[in-house]
Structures are given as structure tokens and as C-alpha cells.
Design a protein around this nucleic acid. Structure first.
Lengths: 230, 230
DNA sequence: GAACTGTAGATTGTCAACAATAGGCGATGT
DNA sequence: ACATCGCCTATTGTTGACAATCTACAGTTC
């Protein structure tokens, strides 16, 4: 039988996941303040659905960790403490280092494909830096790292990293002070790309570690400033 | 006011999470076969509750990855392929190595507390090995590693590892061939404990890597045998 | 006036009925 | 006999109503 292969199976995912994806995007974009309560009823009416699917989506996000649930009180947007930042970036460093090793071990072709994707992202990033679109820069920054990890092809690593990426975006946005080292941002990512392409494993590990450490320093520093103000 | 501090706040956790925890334990114990469908209605009646909370719990487990959801079909127990085993143990290696570093950096006291917990687990493990209680051995094996990671105190690392631990137990049970190297099992864990205590960072990394590699080899080997039979 | 208590409002937690969908199975036609 | 079509049933997906719980506020008492 002549199966038309052009038609892709419209794999309608579970509704709760679609809602969760939308909501996560809204949260990391900063549409909800940290600590803010998520009201099920208003969310349900906004999405033109009932509370059931909404509750299921919220459960997912609680499991992910970007929402916290208090019994009989509801769910609230995660409030990130300084220790959380350190945790997140420590795990990110480990995951990216693992992804780097797996990628380099996987062979030249896989590395090349990944590099191609990363180049495109860096190119976009440079454009957004030129017009100072912080929202897009944050998105592309995480997209770069997510694509990097995705290149390794380990689905569990990818799933783990997606949560970390969401939390990282929350760190950046909630502090409301975007990238203090904007001038070197593109260059830093280009460094990672170059080292991946040249296959310098040790240097790659080192630059990833450096990248995370400076991020933590920047984020905790701006956080300290805010504390002084408050 | 004289607040009686002896009373601890009974922080009743969300019902869905309680159900999810119970169900996860049942799954990793092998009460459900891989690929088997989880019927919401029967589960709800077994738990003396309605389908709502059950569905929420199932959502959580889908997010974790030990269940897979197919739209309008329901949720099924994850079927582990050989590649999954490799993925799981690769990530476990990375997480444990990261935990080891964090633990050694955290200071002597934290290391000592962790070692004490690990010693107790090894002791229990030896007892169960003596009576060949495979179910308990598998549980204690993962409890050892989970406690090891927990020692580092990184909540995100712990949460990540709990899922990996659940998947690992599924690997072991679903293959239905427990520990081929039962004689060295206790010794291997004792090695990890000793190296943690002595602070040998590089050796610790190496032995963790070795531990995971042999596990993958054992699991994939027994899997191959089964394929031949089937 | 301060502290405690009881009530009111809002929000979450739970439930049972209803609707929709996918796969199984038999009927039908070639 | 084989393939196809259409119904049928079991199960999931969704909904609105109801119950339980918490916070806030007002009333009451000392």
C-alpha cells in the first residue's frame, strides 16, 4: 500500500502537557511574580477549559519544581534564594560537562550537526544584542545551552536540563537586571562552540565551569545589591 | 506565650503526591509489568478515592518518566530499552560524581555524617545478602546511592537522582535477573564509602565510573540472553 | 484598648456524571 | 477467504457541583 509519508502523525499530546508548556513559558517570561499564587479558576477560564486539566498541568510544574504546592492553599511561583542559584548552576555545569563528553564520544558527525545549530543561535543572539532585546537574549542564551545538551542525544539529560533552563531564566528575569557582561556574552558562547568544534575536551570543561561560575557571581552580586536597597 | 515546641506542624502533603509516591513504590517493586496499562478507575477504587487525584498522581509520574501517556489511550508503565539503560547509568555517573565533589568540598563534618548513614545501609545490605532477599538488596542498593547523593545537600541533584534511582530499580527488576556479581556487591559499596572517607577524589570518580560501567554491562548482558530466549 | 472567638468569603480538594475517542469484533460484500 | 466497513464497548478526557479548609475581619469580652 502506498502510504503517503509526507503526512506526519498528528500526535496530539495530552492536554495537561500543552497547558503546562504554555504556563511554563509564561512563568519564565516573568508574567508571574515569584511567590505569586496561581489561581486555578481564573487560569481555567482564561484557557477556556475547566479546572481539572489545569490542576493536572499545575501538578506537572510542581513536580518540575518551578511551582510549589501548599496543601489547601494552592500553588505558588517558586521563590529563588541565593542558595538555589548556586544549586542550579552547579547542576547545570555537571549536565553540560556530561553532555560535552557524550557529544565528543559520539563522533564527528553529531558534533558537526550540533555546531551548526549552535552557530545559528549565536547569530540570532548577536542580532538581539544589537537591539538590546533582553527577553530574546535570555531565551536564546538558554536555547543555546539546551541545544548543546540536546546534541548529546541523551533524552534524560535533555529532560533534566529543560527544567534547569527554566529555572535559570527565572533567576535572570526575577532579578530584573539582565546580563551585566553583555559585551562578552556572544563571545563566551562562541568560545564554547569553537572548543566543541576543535574537540578540546579539557578546555571545554574548563570554559563551561568558568561560564557557570561567572553567572553565579553576577546573579548573586545583583541580588546582594537588591537586598541593600530593600 | 509558651509555645510547646514539641508539636511539629503536621504539614499534610498534597494527596496526589502521596498517591504518586505509593504508586512509584509499587511500580519499582515490579507490581506492574513494563508496558502494562494503568487503569484509573480500578486504581481509584483500590485507593478509596476518585479518579481526580489519581489522574493528578499519574501526571506526576509521567513527568518523572516512569510512566508514558498516550492521548485517549491512557498511561503505561515505561518499557526500558537497552539504550535507556545506557542513558540512565550515564546520568547517574555524572550526578554521583558531582555529588562526590560537592560533598568533599562541603567539609569534614558533612562527609562524616554521610559516611555514617552509608555504613548503616551497607550493614543492612550484608544481612540481606546473607539471606538472598533480592527485593531488599535492590532497595538498599539504591538507598545507598540516594543517600550518597543526598549527602551533598543539593536539593535539585537529589530530586533528579530519585527519578534515576526509580528507573534503575525498574531495570534490575524487569530483567528479573538480580545481581550476577552478588559476591562483590557489598565490597564495591564499601570501596566507595572508604574512598569518600579518605577523601580520594580522583579514585572516587574512577570507582563510581567503574561501578556504573559494570552495572550497564551486567544489565545489557542479561538482556541479550533474554532476547536469545525470546 | 487588646486579645480572643466566631463567622464570612474565597480558594482548593474531591467527587460523580457526561462526552469523546480508540481499538475490538462481527457483518457484509467481493 | 480476505479485506473493508461500521457498530460497540471499555477507557480516558472533561465538566460542573459540592465539601473541606484557610485567611481575614468583625464582634465580643475582659
Amino acid at each position: 500500500m502506498a502510504m503517503p509519508e509526507v503526512l506526519f502523525a498528528l500526535e496530539g499530546r495530552p492536554t495537561a502537557q500543552l497547558i503546562a508548556d504554555q504556563l511554563r513559558e509564561q512563568i519564565v517570561k516573568g508574567m508571574f511574580r515569584p511567590g505569586e499564587q496561581i489561581n486555578e479558576s481564573v487560569l481555567a477560564s482564561q484557557l477556556r477549559t475547566s479546572r481539572g486539566p489545569v490542576r493536572e498541568a499545575l501538578q506537572r510544574l510542581c513536580q518540575e519544581g518551578i511551582l510549589v504546592s501548599r496543601r489547601n492553599r494552592g500553588v505558588f511561583v517558586l521563590e529563588l534564594a541565593t542558595d538555589d542559584i548556586r544549586e542550579i548552576y552547579a547542576v547545570r555545569e555537571a549536565v553540560e560537562a556530561t553532555a560535552a563528553d557524550a557529544l565528543l564520544d559520539a563522533g564527528q558527525e553529531q558534533v558537526r550537526d550540533t555546531c551548526q545549530a549552535l552557530k545559528a543561535i549565536i547569530s540570532d543572539m548577536a542580532k538581539q544584542v544589537a537591539v538590546s532585546d533582553w527577553q530574546s537574549i535570555a531565551r536564546l542564551d538558554m536555547q543555546f545551552h539546551t541545544s548543546f545538551v540536546a546534541g548529546a542525544g541523551n533524552t534524560r539529560l535533555i529532560r533534566i536540563y529543560e527544567t534547569l533552563a527554566a529555572e535559570s531564566r527565572m533567576c535572570i528575569l526575577n532579578l530584573e537586571i539582565a546580563y551585566p557582561r553583555i559585551d562578552v556574552l556572544v563571545q563566551e558562547h562562541q568560545n564554547i562552540l569553537d572548543l566543541l568544534e576543535s574537540g578540546g575536551r579539557e578546555e571545554l570543561h574548563k570554559v563551561i565551569k568558568q561560564h557557570m561560575q561567572t553567572a553565579v557571581e553576577d546573579l548573586t552580586a545583583t541580588r546582594k545589591e537588591k537586598e541593600v536597597i530593600a
